[in-house]
């Protein structure tokens, strides 16, 4: 063992050398960096794990995917800390564009939001006509509702639905905010047997693996559409952003080939696609 110990400094030196060498090759790759700020749903559903490698191979850019809520993603865009956004919070996006932080906002795809709840359905909302009716019933029954509470696209949609139902949930005992991503919030709702709003993609992907025990209560309402846009951060505002890369990514997302991949993603595994491609369509045609 003593002999082993005498060689220990050699191992440490070797480790240091290889560690420094591999970290500095990381520096060399810095030239063509692209920071993509996106929502947790695109990452948690696994879609980006499929698309990003194809994009990197095609263009030679190195994509740093930072998956946060749509709200935080747009904040990063406002500060010039991201190059391109893939987000799903249409009202906030419109404000973002109007304030001049973004350029070339393009429709990419949609899926839909669903209201989920535990099988015993304490608020009796199964089959409710609209999400607003369901929310009113949940408020009346004081049934547990779990909110993302993180300014994500899903959270923004949820706020809109509560407003439409005329319910102010702030400070109510039955209304709890997780402050976590979609996947984690679904896990919390499953454990606590609460109701929540989720995007169908993340729900399908997660339910397959984790058997959440949550059932779809309300779906199919035009108001529940979940629409994803790609936005380039305005290079006129932030000269340091990589606009060439951002444009390449936006073009990639709406290209015919990518749209085909999106239309089939998850079909085999989950029985139905998780996202529906919409490139080139007018938002009005989706019922917005």
């Amino acid at each position: 063992m003593n002999r082993i110990l005498r060689t220990l400094p050699l191992f440490v030196a070797l480790f240091l050398f290889s560690a420094v060498a591999s970290v500095s090759t990381g520096w060399a790759a810095e030239q063509k960096n692209l920071i993509l700020a996106t929502t947790t749903s695109t990452q948690d559903s696994g879609l980006l794990d499929v698309l990003i490698p194809i994009f990197e191979k095609q263009t030679g850019y190195f994509v740093k995917t930072i998956s946060v809520g749509s709200g935080q993603a747009m904040k990063m865009g406002e500060k010039g800390e991201a190059d391109v956004l893939l987000v799903h919070s249409p009202d906030a996006e419109k404000k973002f564009m109007a304030d001049g932080f973004g350029v070339n906002r393009k429709l990419v795809m949609h899926n839909d939001f669903i209201v989920l709840g535990p099988a015993n359905d304490p608020a009796r909302i199964r089959g409710a006509m609209t999400a607003a009716d369901a929310i009113k019933a949940i408020a009346r029954a004081n049934a547990l509702w779990l909110s993302r509470g993180d300014n994500s696209g899903t959270h923004a949609k949820e706020k809109g639905l509560f407003k439409a139902a005329g319910i102010n949930p702030e400070g109510q005992k039955w209304f709890q905010q997780t402050g976590l991503g979609m996947g984690e919030t679904l896990n919390v709702a499953a454990e606590k047997k609460g109701y929540l709003l989720a995007d169908r993609g993340t729900y399908l992907a997660l339910n397959k693996k984790a058997h959440l025990g949550l059932n779809i209560m309300v779906q199919g309402e035009p108001k529940l559409l979940n629409i994803y846009h790609v936005i380039e951060v305005n290079p006129a505002k932030w000269p340091k952003v990589n606009n060439a890369g951002a444009r390449a990514f936006a073009d990639f997302m709406v290209s015919k080939k990518t749209q085909e991949i999106i239309s089939t993603f998850g079909k085999k595994e989950f029985g139905s696609p998780l996202f529906f491609p919409d490139a080139g369509k007018k938002p009005e045609s989706l019922g917005l």
Binding site: T40, Q43, D44, G46, L180, G181, M182, G183, E184, L186, N187, A205, L206, N207, K208, K209, A210, L212
Partner: peptide
Amino acid sequence: VMETGRGNF
């Protein structure tokens, strides 16, 4: 953390 969020326990 990410795999937990994805339900890959």
